[in-house]
């Protein structure tokens, strides 16, 4: 641990690489300098760093997203970068990007890209005070809930053909195969609940709908807010081209309403009443929401999370990381099993 010394840069090599990549993208000049640099909390398979760069005396804030070796999931950082590029002309609060370095051998221990740092903070639904603020917003002008559903509709209106320029197409069965494959490869113990849940989800394959851009990890915790409005939508590393109902199901998990060992909010994603959200979504997209299909995708979302957490546990077990959050993930699994047992009507 280095701590941080005000007005000094703790890691000059990382700061230099940031500037070099921005210069190559035409986003920084030769005389520009990094004035601040710090690693941020969060990021399971990405590391995030906050930086400020002085451009001819004018300071701007940036985020560096890096995929270090031995990261939690083998997701494509280039795809995430291209998705941000794709979204640059969409009416969505996503950051502009300023260069991508695909090499593995970098001071970030892997590829990285640079993007604008947007204003706002990510609500943590597992914190009571954050849930309270979201509830107050819901009981007030509902602007966070309105933004959340409107932005989701905007994402889902990006059709599959256009989205395929940035993200990988994946059918329902391919999505189930992907996460079951990760689970089978990474699990350290046998889990009868998960085995049963995969069979249950496969038995409920929904009728297909037109594919579109799917965020893949859409929830209020991956948004920035100023407590009144959503100011940013981040973390596109799991995006794909496929069934939009995945996002609706995933964000309906009790886990994403703040449940851990005790229940969280009664609101969907601690943000809006379920029926209200689904009605607004239908009005905006023209696509009706079938609760049974959402239930299937909610279970699939739980299985995806289970696989991600299991990967972290496995990586920790192998000694490939000392990140204690990977080990901590073990304690989130009972709650996901409970969600699955309820979804399957056990």
């Amino acid at each position: 641990m280095t701590g941080i010394v005000p007005a000094e840069i703790g890691d000059a090599a990382k700061a230099d690489a940031l500037l070099e990549t921005m210069r190559a993208a035409g986003s920084a000049g030769q005389g520009d300098v990094v004035t601040y640099f710090e690693q941020l909390e969060g990021g399971w398979s990405r590391h995030s760093y906050a930086a400020r760069v002085a451009h001819d005396g004018e300071e701007r804030a940036y985020i560096v997203r890096a995929r270090p070796s031995g990261s939690l999931l083998d997701t494509d950082l280039g795809q995430e970068f291209r998705t941000y590029e794709l979204l640059s002309d969409a009416p969505l609060p996503t950051p502009g990007v300023h260069g991508y370095e695909p090499a593995e051998d970098t001071p970030y221990d892997g590829p990285f890209f640079v993007m604008d740092r947007l204003e706002g903070h990510a609500p943590n639904v597992w914190r009571g005070r954050d849930r309270k603020k979201l509830l107050e917003n819901w009981e007030g002008d509902r602007q966070v809930a309105t933004d959340l559903v409107e932005h989701l509709a905007t994402i889902h209106l990006i059709d599959g053909e256009r989205a395929a320029a940035a993200a990988t197409p994946r059918t329902f069965t391919e999505t189930v195969d992907r996460w079951e494959g990760v689970y089978d490869e990474m699990r350290l113990v046998n889990d009868p609940v998960i085995e049963e849940a995969y069979a249950w989800v496969r038995s409920r394959e929904p009728d297909p709908v037109a594919p579109c851009l799917v965020h893949g990890d859409y929830r209020i915790g991956n948004c920035l807010t100023d407590d009144r409005r959503i100011t940013g939508i981040l973390d596109w590393e799991l995006s794909f081209v496929g069934d939009p109902r995945f996002d609706l199901g995933y964000m309906s998990l009790d886990y994403h309403a703040g449940k851990f060992t005790t229940p969280g909010s009664a609101l969907l994603n601690a943000t809006a009443e379920h029926a209200w959200f689904h009605e607004r979504y239908t009005a905006l997209t023209g696509r009706p929401v079938d609760p049974e299909v959402v239930r299937t995708f909610t279970a699939l979302g739980a299985l995806m999370l289970f696989s991600i957490l299991t990967t972290g546990i496995s990586v920790y077990d192998q000694g490939a990381t000392t990140d204690i959050r990977m080990a901590w993930g073990r304690f989130a699994l009972p709650g996901l099993r409970q969600d699955l047992a309820r979804l399957m009507d056990w």
């Binding site: 641990m1 280095t2 701590g3 941080i4 010394v5 710090e38 690693q39 941020l40 909390e41 969060g42 590391h47 990140d323 204690i324 959050r325 901590w328």
Partner: peptide
């Protein structure tokens, strides 16, 4: 062993 204020990431590690 940390020197000075913990970075955001380091603090999250300790809390975890």
């Amino acid at each position: 062993d940390a020197d000075g204020r913990l970075e955001d990431y380091e603090r999250s590690q300790v809390l975890s």
